[in-house]
Design a protein around this nucleic acid. Structure first.
Lengths: 243, 243
DNA sequence: GAAGGGCGTTTTGCCATCGTAACAATAGAG
DNA sequence: CTCTATTGTTACGATGGCAAAACGCCCTTC
């Protein structure tokens, strides 16, 4: 059996037993390729599946009645996607691949049985769900209470730090894989204004761009501007009992 | 033993066995009174406790470096508060009582042991955490992509529906227990602009106010204006196995 | 019952931020 | 080497922020 991307990712935070790793690997038994731009899930569609993202990137979003789009979250390999389907049978959000990606779908009842069999895995998923919630509140504060420039800075830092969690080879420059319009839809701005901010930050020497990749030149100042603190460093998974 | 507020609330959604009810009641063994305005938790404080809210209301918020406040969530009796402490040892947000309230604190390790003993409870909490996450994404879309008036409408509807979940006697008018400044801090507006919107909505016959209470006169139109859909109706907890 | 204080609400004028529309420039894909 | 997607640019206007003050209301105190 191929290793579990999900377990590998978790193992960076918390020790897992072989039995648990094997259990988690079950969730990735049926990988499915999706092309860049393809929809993985549509809002309001009846859903009984969740996903583990194995390769590539995926984003979730909603479209409001007036046609405007809010991008909710960008997902990276090892992320657990679509857990809303444990609560709502109709998808509250859409999922689209930003990349040629590989997702591993599994039935939500398979997940339930897994949780029953491995209480520690249940606790782990509960914990990850709480971490996602905190990430959402950070973005809420950013949208509700900071300027356009601060939001762009915080967003870039967020993606940067999450890219690095899944790709150790990244040091300075990285590929955002989002257009400026998509950035705007994520942080509540128009593409025009995102462009203004990005160019301004480039002039100020905060970032630089070359052939689609972006470099954060002054992370400390970007963190100040964006009122951003990297929570990944503060994660403390002692709560889980030893493996 | 006194009944469990948490279990009572959950029982509205999903059948619970007596054993499970008793287990959940354990989390409410040590009720603590807090006065209106008192802090229950401060941001960055080391925390090892979670809470079940038994009476009154509590809100969570953060203060940004420039002094502005973002209110993250208003909690109602039966709500499970502070689950971030399963992931982060330092509180990512502050908690304050909006009311004279009663919270039941319990150690996060007590929760872990409970989850190990009762996998179905673990699944239930996982599920509730996912529901919270969806609620946050709804607010994210509201802040990122809708006008001031829409945000006020959506916020009022959200509080209204959640009040009714915990208080069956509420039909038309309810007590918001928030100042206009607090509403503004919740939805990313100033108190001045909240006031403009509230008065406008009153003139239009959408809402009415009398001695601190508020009535939603035209819920259908408010839902349209706020792009709001009540997700509580759509919850589908079949995912949990039978009790 | 009058006086004072504190809190929340209401109101105003002015102005910054950000959105809209429309178009030009550039770059990537086939 | 064209075609399309993305980025860059501008002028103008709307939305919502800011500062400051007045108002109303409840509560206390005399």
């Amino acid at each position: 059996m191929a290793g579990s991307c999900f377990a590998d990712r978790l193992a960076k935070h918390v020790p897992l037993s072989d039995v648990e790793k094997k259990a988690l690997a079950r969730l990735e038994e049926n990988p499915r390729r999706v092309k860049r731009g393809a929809m993985i899930q549509r809002v309001n569609e009846t859903v009984t599946e969740l996903f583990v993202l194995r390769h590539g990137r995926v984003m979730s979003f909603v479209i409001l009645p007036d046609g405007s789009r809010q991008i909710l979250r960008v997902y990276f390999p090892g992320d657990f996607i679509g857990s809303a389907s444990t609560v709502y049978s109709k998808a509250p959000e859409s999922l689209v691949a930003l990349d040629d990606a590989v997702v591993c779908p599994f039935d939500k009842h398979a997940l339930r049985r897994l949780l029953e069999e491995f209480p520690r895995v249940a606790a782990l998923l509960f914990l990850l769900s709480n971490a996602e919630r905190v990430a959402m509140t950070d973005r809420l504060a950013s949208l509700g209470r900071t300027s356009a420039k601060a939001r762009v800075a915080a967003f870039l830092l967020d993606i940067f730090n999450r890219v690095r969690l899944t790709d150790d080879s990244i040091t300075d420059s990285f590929d955002l894989k989002l257009t400026q319009e998509e950035i705007g839809d994520a942080i509540g701005l128009t593409s025009v204004h995102v462009n203004r901010m990005v160019r301004q930050m480039e002039l100020e020497g905060l970032i630089s761009r070359a052939n689609g990749r972006i470099s954060l030149l002054d992370i400390k100042r970007l963190e100040e501007i964006g009122h951003y603190t990297n929570r990944h460093k503060d994660m403390d998974l002692d709560w889980l009992p030893a493996a």
